[in-house]
């Protein structure tokens, strides 16, 4: 039971990170209708920028950890968001009304570019950082000496996710930008006729998605204590899987899917085998889609005849 509780905590934390990345996929898909294959690499870039800015701040003599983290968070969100904006501008906007596969291949190309850019500019070796947020609580002392631990970093990850989700939900449901986004999702032509700046709205979608991915990247860095240039690929595929599992286009679905993938992976590793954890996640995706072809919370596709 204790073991189970511990895995549940670990799974939820991992799932939160996946969920944050998945939101970026699902938002872009909802509005532009394309799989942004470069999004996983945006997450990786976010992790790198968090790592570098942390390093620079520490070497500049800053010691107050909360202040450092706040600055790192802001810096990585801003710069990564600019990456998202630039990529949309260069690689996707010229292809917006084109053939459906063209933007997707452009995105795959962009993903290669980002992976390799960070490999070339920062080297191929894994970058470790020392634990920044330490300590934690022991929730329950088991009889066989197994204790359920809840570390501070886990609390931070989950809290950050909840706060971001709250802000984000408010943004989409209550603000002008959110309304524009929903309008573009329904019908871009009509939205633009009604005075919505479609280009700007789409740009903002990429900016927000990238900023959330940057947070995920920073959380990953804090939680696992390392970044490497290739981490975007696997995390990206998992997060996209999460978005599809939850029902692509649905924001709560993305979070739910993220948590589901995180939990599946953690429990599979804990009870069965670590090697096959990804196989388990992907297999469950396939099984879910066979029975619920539009994911857990996706709207059923109405076929107009």
């Amino acid at each position: 039971m204790d073991y189970f509780a511990q895995q549940l905590i670990n799974g939820l934390v991992l799932g939160s990170i996946y969920g944050l990345i998945a939101i970026g996929y699902t938002m872009v898909y909802g509005i532009v209708g394309m799989i942004n294959f470069a999004h996983g690499d945006i997450f990786m870039i976010g992790g790198f920028i968090a790592m570098i800015s942390f390093l620079v701040l520490v070497s500049l003599g800053l010691t107050a950890i909360p202040l450092i983290l706040l600055i790192v968070l802001l810096v990585s969100m801003v710069i990564t968001a600019l990456y998202g904006w630039t990529i949309e501008r260069i690689a996707y906007r010229p292809l917006r009304h084109s053939f459906r596969l063209a933007p997707m291949l452009s995105a795959i190309g962009m993903s290669f570019v980002l992976t390799n850019f960070s490999q070339v500019s920062q080297g191929a070796r894994v970058k470790p950082v020392p634990p920044i947020i330490t300590g934690g609580y022991t929730l329950h002392e088991g009889s066989e000496g197994f204790a359920v631990q809840l570390s501070n970093i886990q609390i931070v990850v989950v809290l950050a996710t909840i706060v971001l989700l709250a802000v984000f939900t408010w943004l989409v449901s209550r603000t002008r930008l959110g309304r524009d986004m929903r309008a573009c999702e329904q019908d871009q032509t009509m939205a633009s006729l009604l005075g919505v700046d479609v280009d700007r709205t789409i740009s903002m979608t990429f900016v927000i998605g990238a900023a959330l991915a940057a947070v995920a990247g920073m959380m990953y860095l804090l939680y696992y204590g390392l970044v490497d240039f290739f981490m975007g690929f696997v995390a990206g595929i998992k997060a996209f899987t999460a978005a599809v599992l939850g029902g692509i286009g649905s924001l709560p679905g993305a979070m739910l899917g993220g948590l589901a993938i995180g939990l599946i992976e953690t429990f599979w590793s804990a009870y069965f085998s670590v090697e096959y954890k990804d196989v388990a996640a992907f297999s469950i995706l396939i099984v879910v889609l066979i029975f619920m072809p539009t994911g857990l919370l996706g709207r059923p596709e109405v076929e107009k005849v």
Binding site: A102, S106, N116
Partner: peptide, 15 residues
């Protein structure tokens, strides 16, 4: 730089 160039080429060719 191979994958970098390859990626850029893919984007440009698509555009």
């Amino acid at each position: 730089y191979r994958m970098l160039v390859f990626g850029i080429a893919m984007v440009l060719l698509m555009i």
